[in-house]
Amino acid sequence: MSRIKARFEALKKEGRGALIPYLQAFDPDYETSLELLKAMPAAGADLIEIGVPFSDPSADGPTIQAAALRGLKAGATLGGVLEMVRSFRETDAETPIILMGYLNPIDSYGPAEFCFDAVQAGVDGIIVVDMPTEEADLLDSHAREAGLDIISLVAPTTSRTRLFHVLKDASGFVYYVSITGITGTGSASQAQLEEALPKIREATDLPVAIGFGISTPEQAWTASRIGDAAVVASALIKTMAGTLSEGKATDKTLPAVLEQLMALSAAVRA
């Protein structure tokens, strides 16, 4: 059984949803982001999303754009991100790791080689922001062969008919982009989530993670109850950015992010 499936089944038995924190690889440098990654499970991460820095993150708001830029300055490459996951797996064999990014670095790496290397490194799923269902054949067969889940995105603009189309071969879990907008810029209301989720569940039996605009413990609690997981990204990165000095990590960096993660995790477990 895949790590993603095992984790969601275990949480179902616990009767709670998952918390999925996000970090940008190499932000602000390789060592700090690896250390943060390694510390996340103990601070309450159920699954972890790692952002792969890209020069043109057209679906991201200012917070993640800045993080991507710091990551690239620190020398981030897709190969480097896989190296980071490999290192994480030396001490953690269970926490699912999802890479989130844009298609071009994967295209450049080579789709088949990437899927194989990612699974070898210990990656469980990938979210490719600019690869809709219509273009997914670029990775689909390679991912399936390698045992890598391609996480499907659905949005408030996805119609009922289209939900069935997008989710027919979905694997791992479904990522619900809960606002029409870029990351870190707005939030869906509880009522909006309560209206959207049943429609998605009609089209899939997979767990549904809710992301975009979740920043507070209350919002995380709500999303993890209405959906099956809450993704928190920009809020954590904003905290990290606030601790940096001239773009470099300080001794406040890890404690600040981990403290916030623990508060979110406590809410999800409440």
Binding site: D130, P156, V177
Partner: peptide, 20 residues
């Protein structure tokens, strides 16, 4: 019909924009 000229072109956008 996929918006391709040979291997080029296509519709590489986020799902939010795909219906549009």
């Amino acid at each position: 019909e996929r918006g391709r000229f040979g291997v080029f072109g296509g519709r590489f956008v986020a799902e939010t924009l795909m219906p549009l």
